[in-house]
Amino acid sequence: MSSNHKSPGISNALQYSLLFVSGVILTVILLILEFPSGLVIVIIMGLSVSIFTIRPMYLIYKSKSLPAINRYVIKNQKKPMFGYAYALAHGDNQDIEDSLKRILKKYKQKEIQTVYGANLALHHSDADALLEFAEKMTRKDYKEYYLGAAHLLSSDEVLANKFVAKLSTPWMIHSSNASIALRNKDGETFRLEANRSVESAAGLQRYILYHMFERMEEEKFS
């Protein structure tokens, strides 16, 4: 990927060292205060779970903070799923293609293959391949979302709108409407629907949508 983007200021190794030292200090303090050793263990384990499990899950699925999600993506960019998000935010078109291919190579589950295969087809503006992947999807909203995108890519806006009308997930509805507005060169509606899509999403999905729309606007209206 592009090498001109800075890594986080504090390395993962240093962060883990600081957390370990903090944990030791907290343990000593609790023992000095004569907390029962069993309670000390529970407290330390609870904090560890919060730091290493709950917080990452919150960032991936629930966070609304793009800067916080960005820091997490940068730290985990070598993992395929986060590599795709990183490429959208910091890379070029080749980086995006390479990141999608890494996901498809590593994860063989049908759902991942169809969704990220569809994303790669969309990246190539390949309507036939996108339609083929969409037809194989089992999740209803995703299927209708990508079928709508495929027909829009084929210049069949009427059929695309029929699939959009079936959607129930807010970010998908607004994302589809933004794509339709973009095709019609309606910049005002595109920005309105793009913002609504981002606002209705959370976590990594919010981050991906934000940077996807930024790229779309730059390529179409710059």
Rank of each mutant, 00 (worst) to 15 (best):
residue 151 H to W: 14
residue 201 A to K: 04
residue 83 G to A: 13
residue 78 K to W: 06
residue 151 H to P: 01
residue 133 F to R: 04
residue 41 I to H: 02
residue 118 A to G: 06
residue 150 A to S: 09
residue 161 N to W: 08
residue 164 V to K: 10
residue 140 K to H: 14
residue 144 E to T: 06
residue 75 K to P: 00
residue 210 Y to V: 00
residue 8 P to H: 11
residue 174 H to N: 15
residue 150 A to H: 02
residue 157 E to Q: 06
residue 163 F to P: 07
residue 22 S to Y: 02
residue 18 L to Q: 06
residue 89 A to G: 12
residue 1 M to R: 11
residue 71 R to D: 11
residue 123 H to K: 08
residue 208 I to P: 00
residue 218 E to P: 00
residue 185 K to W: 00
residue 75 K to M: 09
residue 56 P to A: 09
residue 75 K to A: 14
residue 56 P to E: 05
residue 132 E to I: 10
residue 52 F to G: 11
residue 126 D to G: 08
residue 82 F to N: 04
residue 215 R to T: 13
residue 67 P to S: 03
residue 165 A to V: 05
residue 55 R to K: 15
residue 138 T to E: 15
residue 29 I to V: 15
residue 187 G to H: 08
residue 193 E to D: 10
residue 10 I to K: 12
residue 174 H to Q: 15
residue 217 E to D: 11
residue 112 I to W: 07
residue 103 I to C: 05
residue 140 K to N: 13
residue 163 F to D: 07
residue 139 R to P: 02
residue 20 F to T: 06
residue 179 S to M: 07
residue 29 I to R: 07
residue 118 A to C: 05
residue 86 Y to Q: 01
residue 125 S to M: 12
residue 124 H to K: 11
residue 126 D to P: 12
residue 98 D to C: 05
residue 57 M to F: 14
residue 150 A to P: 02
residue 88 L to Y: 14
residue 45 M to W: 00
residue 210 Y to W: 03
residue 176 S to V: 01
residue 131 L to K: 15
residue 68 A to S: 12
residue 215 R to K: 15
residue 35 F to W: 15
residue 222 S to Y: 13
residue 100 L to S: 04
residue 201 A to L: 05
residue 13 A to M: 01
residue 204 L to R: 06
residue 39 L to C: 03
residue 27 T to H: 13
residue 84 Y to Q: 02
residue 139 R to K: 12
residue 172 M to D: 01
residue 81 M to T: 07
residue 29 I to Q: 07
residue 68 A to L: 13
residue 48 S to M: 13
residue 186 D to N: 15
residue 45 M to Q: 00
residue 95 D to S: 15
residue 59 L to H: 10
residue 186 D to Y: 09
residue 91 G to N: 09
residue 133 F to I: 00
residue 144 E to W: 12
residue 27 T to P: 11
residue 209 L to D: 00
residue 26 L to V: 15
